[in-house]
């Protein structure tokens, strides 16, 4: 892969050189070093205009609105409700990540051993939820989970128990979020598992490892990049969830994004809202740094190899 890129780069360098009618091998080399960087300009401009500049604006607001100072951050860390919501947000995201991992791992493994046809079908099933509006899916869960819904109806009719609280519980929120986030776990897991040499497991058992040992000492470590990249993706996406906790949870499940929305759009206290946003961003960056330390040699981003 790397070789290809180099060849292509050389070709283009050559082409540019020919087009400009410039000569000299040394010159061509130096041109080749920086010219491709020009291709980054559109992305750089877009990112700075639409991401970096607003981000800086958000940060400045958080320390100037309504007056200069750190009062918004003081408010953030001294208000009990904020701390509760932040802790709850992280706990929910961790639970959802673990649930997704437990569900996705066997599924992704199965995808590596079935026929191409079945794999395509399995991929379709995992992608299908992504093509349905998140609102529609969440409403479907609302109908299924409510006290007078079909699940509780069946439980009452067949087992005479219930209604068991399903909706407006952490369970309901975790269920809804896991369904939405599952593809983001399955796909990186699958892409890293697909690269594992299948012969390693028979080799391990040949050397006397039982299946459990073989799995934990050979397969699991090799699939680690997938676990990390899937886990980080699901966790970070999970931190920012808004609509599912709002609909499947009660106020007791609302997460930090609900707090931000409320500060920005209801109370119009933008200083406090932006402080919450910056806090969430800093936490996310810290997590990425910490996790990438544990995951030396692997990439956190699906499909990117270091």
């Amino acid at each position: 892969m790397m070789n290809n890129i180099v060849t292509e780069g050389d070709q283009s360098t050559q082409a540019i050189a020919l087009g400009a009618d410039a000569g000299g091998v040394g010159r061509r080399r130096s041109l080749g070093n920086w010219r491709p960087l020009l291709l980054l300009i559109p992305a750089f401009v877009i990112v700075s205009l639409f991401f970096l500049a607003p981000l800086i604006d958000v940060f400045i607001r958080s320390i100037t609105d309504p007056k200069p100072g750190v009062q918004n951050y003081v408010w953030l860390f001294t208000t009990e409700a904020n701390i509760n919501v932040v802790v709850r947000t992280f706990v929910t995201a961790i639970v959802v990540t673990l649930v997704c991992l437990l569900l996705a791992y066997p599924y992704a493994y199965l995808m590596t051993i079935v026929s191409d046809r079945t794999r395509n079908l399995m991929q379709l099933f995992i992608m299908m939820p992504l093509w349905t509006s998140i609102l529609v899916r969440t409403l479907a869960w609302m109908v299924l989970l409510q006290d007078t819904g079909p699940i509780n109806g069946l439980l009452m009719a067949w087992f005479g128990i219930g209604p068991i609280p399903l909706i407006r519980t952490t369970f309901g929120v975790a269920l809804g979020m896991s369904q939405v986030l599952l593809p983001f776990m399955v796909l990186p897991l699958y892409s890293s598992m697909a690269k594992i040499d299948k012969r390693l497991l028979p080799a391990a058992s040949n050397l006397g490892a039982n299946p459990v040992t073989a799995f934990f000492t050979v397969y699991l470590p090799l699939s680690r990049p997938g676990i990390f990249s899937g886990g980080v993706t699901v966790f970070i996406l999970g931190l920012g969830f808004y609509i599912i906790p709002a609909l499947l949870g009660s106020s007791k499940e609302s997460m930090i994004s609900a707090l931000i929305q409320q500060q920005i759009s209801v109370f119009l206290m933008w200083g406090q809202g932006t402080a919450l946003g910056i806090f969430l961003l800093v936490c996310t960056i810290l997590i990425l740094i910490v996790v990438s330390r544990f995951n030396r040699g692997g990439s956190l981003f699906p499909g990117v190899d270091r």
Binding site: T79, A81, N84, S250, K252, S254, Q262, F267, M269
Partner: peptide, 16 residues
């Protein structure tokens, strides 16, 4: 007293 209301409401509306 909007600030006091906002703080109390945010706490109530997030289940604290």
């Amino acid at each position: 007293n909007y600030d006091a209301l906002a703080t109390a409401w945010a706490s109530w509306a997030t289940g604290s």
